[in-house]
Design a protein around this nucleic acid. Structure first.
Lengths: 242, 242
DNA sequence: TCAATAGTGTCTGTAAGACAGTATTGT
DNA sequence: ACAATACTGTCTTACAGACACTATTGA
């Protein structure tokens, strides 16, 4: 029985399949995460990740993008959406067997629903607030995994640029790293690292206006074709390997 | 509709959930992959990954381990099993909607089903043969993703040791890297790298016997507590970043 | 002028990789 | 002795990180 190669299509265990989205952005210099408030039992009044059923003829990634759009108004995600992991413990939903495919979304801050809008009970929470909150189901675990994946991806991909709008400056990109990793990076070393990676950033002819406190106007860039950072830009480690 | 938070448990789209396993080992100095032969339509006679239905009260990882055991006889996997990715394109199974959660298994060569045993039509294929074969469903894609994940994991984890039996020598571990990456590594540099990573390898008091061609007997090790390699042991790159 | 931000120069330490040299075995 | 395998030494180069220095702006 349960042989995948010989099964009878009319006799399969009943599963529901959902998608949940860990949506990540940078707000006020901090990593921020999207939550929606539950209006129904179970877990009524608790916060959860945006998500929902996959439709019968819908691709998994499409379902994730649709749920994100429906619950947050982020319609055509300008950032990045990738599969995170699948969670399917038998008791993760109290009512029935639900397997959920989690996705990780990187949203540019320009595309966020405003803090007050709150169309469907959706809100961004800073990482500090977010980690001190109990979410419905196993969403705390999913969220932790999503945050760790996001942090890790910045090390060896160009995905930090998914958080900023073009054109952008090196400092804007640096502030993405600083927010996601919660560290300070040396501006000079950061500049050298990024500008020496071929095809990562395309310098424009224009320069940014200087900020409210003055300062030399910064070089503007748009995203290049490189998707990988090599060598990687590693997070500063405080401990060693033991 | 399709709101995950408010759905009626009796009205959900009908999905089947399966697991498929990309089982990887090292045989004759080459990366090798496990396949099973299909005995039923569709795709009768084609080769596929081992896998099958998740039972109603079974965890996903448990299902993967069980299917691997059922179809290969590898009963209590001594290596490593991790979730790879989930594949759920609406048309990936011609008969109905099937979402499959793929797992990646690292098996030590000592635990392999023998080449002739073939209890349930299962066989190991070298990576060269394996990539020139058409598998059922989207299993070619799953397999490619699994191989890439395996190669990548050796870079920054201690998982190469999941392919060898304790106690083992540095050369055995090196041959795992060489097989998985299909490269030659400098024995001296490899030795220095591994032995300088704290808690990765525990040296034993005994030494291995020397091989058929003689040579100095090698230091024996068992696995240490470290699971991450830091800094990473990167694959040699032939091109650069462009 | 000064404060602030952008970017450059320079030094130091760690580590990768090439490769030569020594150690210990079997034949 | 020689071949084979296991290490060890040493040199070169790349790069991360610290930090001083120059460049260009607003106030």
């Amino acid at each position: 029985m349960a042989d995948p190669l010989t099964y009878d299509p009319t006799e399969y265990p009943p599963f529901a399949v959902t998608v949940d989205v860990v949506a990540v952005t940078v707000r006020k210099g901090q990593l921020a995460l999207l939550r929606v408030e539950r209006g129904e039992e179970p877990h009524r009044g608790q916060w959860a990740l945006p998500g929902g059923f996959v439709k019968p003829d819908e691709d998994l990634a499409t379902a994730a993008a649709r749920e994100l759009a429906e619950e947050t108004g982020v319609d055509d995600l300008a950032g990045h959406l990738e599969q995170l992991q699948t969670y399917g413990a038998p008791d993760r939903d109290p009512r029935m067997r639900v397997v959920t495919v989690a996705y990780l979304a990187f949203a540019p801050s320009s595309q966020l629903p405003q803090a007050g809008t709150d169309a469907a009970g959706a809100r961004w929470w800073s990482i500090d607030d977010a980690t001190n909150m109990t979410l419905a189901y196993d969403h705390n675990q999913i969220l932790r995994d999503g945050v760790e994946r996001a942090r890790s991806k910045l090390e060896y991909t160009s995905l930090a640029a998914a958080f900023v709008d073009e054109p952008f400056t090196a400092a804007e990109l640096r502030r993405v790293y600083e927010a996601v990793w919660d560290v300070r990076l040396d501006p000079g070393n950061f500049w050298r690292k990024l500008s020496s990676t071929p095809s990562l950033l395309v310098p424009l002819d224009t320069r940014a206006e200087s900020g409210p406190d003055g300062g030399r106007p910064a070089q503007l860039f748009r995203r290049g074709t490189a998707t990988q950072l090599h060598p990687a830009l590693l997070r500063p480690r405080h401990g060693g390997n033991r």
